[in-house]
Amino acid sequence: MAFHHHTGNRANNIDNGYKNLMNLRPYDLLNEKNSPAFYLSRPKIRAIYTIFNSVDITDDVHIKYFHEPKVQSHPLDLNEGFEKFIFRTNYTSMQLLSKVQKYVIEAKENVLQPNIGLNTKTSSVKEQSKQNIKRKVILCQRGVLSSIMIIPYRLKASNYNNTIFYATKYCGILHMSDTSWVDKRSKNDTYHLKFMQCCFSDDPDLEPNTNEPVDQNNTEYSVFHTLLKEYDLIYSGETGGIISEHKIDDVHDLNEVNKCRFIMTKLLWSRQRGEDVLNHPKCLHWWLQAYLGNVSDICIGLKDNDGVVRSPVQVRACKDLAINRCWKPHICVRFLYNVIKLVEETMDHVNCPYTTYEFMYDSFQRCIKFKIHLGKTEHSFLNEEYIKHCKERTSFEKE
């Protein structure tokens, strides 16, 4: 095992009503020989949506096309248009998992029960043996997965390294959600979206339009599906754009969309200019986002203290992020798997759409701890339409 843990009645009471779930020991966590390496299957996009004003989820999607900005002749002043910047309406806990819930409700197949539908008369022995490992569904956000996966390399005691996520178990389905999203509103907090506007266009043949106000309330999200051992992970994440000379005729033709070469954008301060930017401490977080979002490339801009990108942007392959680093991808994947199993074991007896378990990684105590919010509270995050659908589409019986 990569950790020592306490569950059920054996859990230790610690501060603020939390119980200790898992003690983290660096040697055990980072020991590469603990078990054979395993990975996620390649994530596939199952739905794409546009979110307006944090609430309205629509199918009116406009995939963005990447245009490498020519900084050499025109430095990018990321302050331009700040006075017209439209800040995001804060998300509530009920809205964070809304994209995934919408996908589940509207999907033609019953994604909540992946074990249903195997015909034992026509299936091969190999297929049937796979089915003997009962698949389990987890609905969540990409940010929850990446924040768990990064923990083995965020063991230093600091508030920055602490993280919280919530979990609800209903009809045998484990749901995990982030904390409520409160956006910062300084000028520096707008620079990345302005940089994105400089890099992406609605058409591969048209240059980006940087004169329109940047609207943080208009965002594309994808719902992804991947496999991690016996788990089906279905999660949402923001979509950047694609590298393509041709426009996609139908953005809802997911066979075509999944063939696309996706790219994401990132900003660093220009004081890193003399170094290999891929050595930056944020590199692991970028790799996790790319890995979970099936993103193949990253465009990195270096901003100076005045918020201006003066040096050429760097377009790099995301696979290069993981080469010769002090961190190992399979360590992150193994830790995610172990945490999911432990969360599931801890909530084994739970079957309520409102009761929420709050899990916290505490870097000061070097542990993961939890406390329970019983019944409907401000932390409950499943909507009523989904709850009804979940009950109808699952044949859940507690064993």
Results as ranks from 00 to 15, higher is better:
residue 69 P to D: 03
residue 73 S to K: 07
residue 79 N to K: 02
residue 53 N to S: 11
residue 271 R to D: 15
residue 337 Y to G: 07
residue 21 L to N: 04
residue 280 H to F: 13
residue 181 W to I: 12
residue 112 L to C: 02
residue 285 H to Y: 07
residue 398 K to H: 13
residue 236 S to I: 00
residue 42 R to H: 10
residue 29 L to N: 03
residue 118 L to F: 08
residue 213 P to C: 03
residue 12 N to L: 15
residue 247 K to V: 11
residue 260 C to Y: 01
residue 344 E to W: 11
residue 370 F to C: 14
residue 340 I to P: 12
residue 340 I to L: 15
residue 65 Y to H: 05
residue 112 L to A: 11
residue 73 S to E: 15
residue 283 C to P: 05
residue 254 L to R: 02
residue 360 M to H: 12
residue 223 V to Q: 06
residue 67 H to S: 09
residue 297 D to N: 13
residue 312 P to Q: 03
residue 72 Q to C: 06
residue 183 D to C: 13
residue 155 L to I: 01
residue 130 K to S: 02
residue 54 S to Q: 08
residue 374 L to N: 15
residue 30 L to E: 08
residue 375 G to V: 09
residue 100 V to D: 07
residue 21 L to Y: 01
residue 244 S to M: 04
residue 221 Y to F: 02
residue 357 Y to Q: 09
residue 101 Q to I: 05
residue 150 I to R: 13
residue 277 V to R: 10
residue 375 G to R: 00
residue 252 H to D: 03
residue 366 R to N: 14
residue 150 I to D: 04
residue 337 Y to N: 15
residue 187 K to V: 00
residue 145 L to H: 03
residue 125 V to Q: 14
residue 337 Y to T: 07
residue 226 T to F: 00
residue 313 V to H: 05
residue 122 T to W: 07
residue 170 Y to C: 02
residue 319 K to H: 13
residue 256 E to W: 05
residue 186 S to V: 02
residue 122 T to G: 04
residue 19 K to V: 12
residue 210 T to L: 04
residue 116 I to S: 06
residue 250 D to G: 12
residue 238 E to G: 03
residue 331 I to S: 00
residue 378 E to R: 09
residue 323 I to N: 10
residue 225 H to L: 12
residue 351 N to Q: 03
residue 325 R to I: 09
residue 55 V to Q: 09
residue 303 K to S: 11
residue 133 I to T: 14
residue 260 C to Q: 12
residue 321 L to P: 10
residue 247 K to I: 08
residue 365 Q to E: 14
residue 154 R to V: 07
residue 242 I to M: 09
residue 144 V to E: 05
residue 108 K to I: 14
residue 201 S to W: 07
residue 194 K to V: 15
residue 378 E to K: 05
residue 364 F to Q: 13
residue 219 T to H: 02
residue 340 I to V: 14
residue 237 G to E: 05
residue 11 A to V: 06
residue 156 K to W: 01
residue 311 S to V: 13
residue 58 T to M: 08
residue 246 H to I: 05
residue 370 F to P: 05
residue 182 V to C: 10
residue 197 Q to L: 07
residue 345 E to S: 11
residue 21 L to T: 09
residue 69 P to T: 01
residue 262 F to E: 04
residue 209 N to R: 01
residue 333 V to F: 02
residue 378 E to H: 00
residue 303 K to A: 14
residue 14 I to E: 08
residue 101 Q to Y: 09
residue 148 I to L: 08
residue 71 V to L: 12
residue 260 C to R: 06
residue 112 L to Y: 04
residue 387 I to F: 05
residue 33 K to N: 10
residue 162 N to H: 02
residue 221 Y to W: 02
residue 42 R to N: 00
residue 95 Q to A: 04
residue 13 N to G: 07
residue 313 V to E: 06
residue 36 P to Q: 00
residue 249 D to Q: 08
residue 383 N to I: 10
residue 279 N to Y: 09
residue 319 K to L: 09
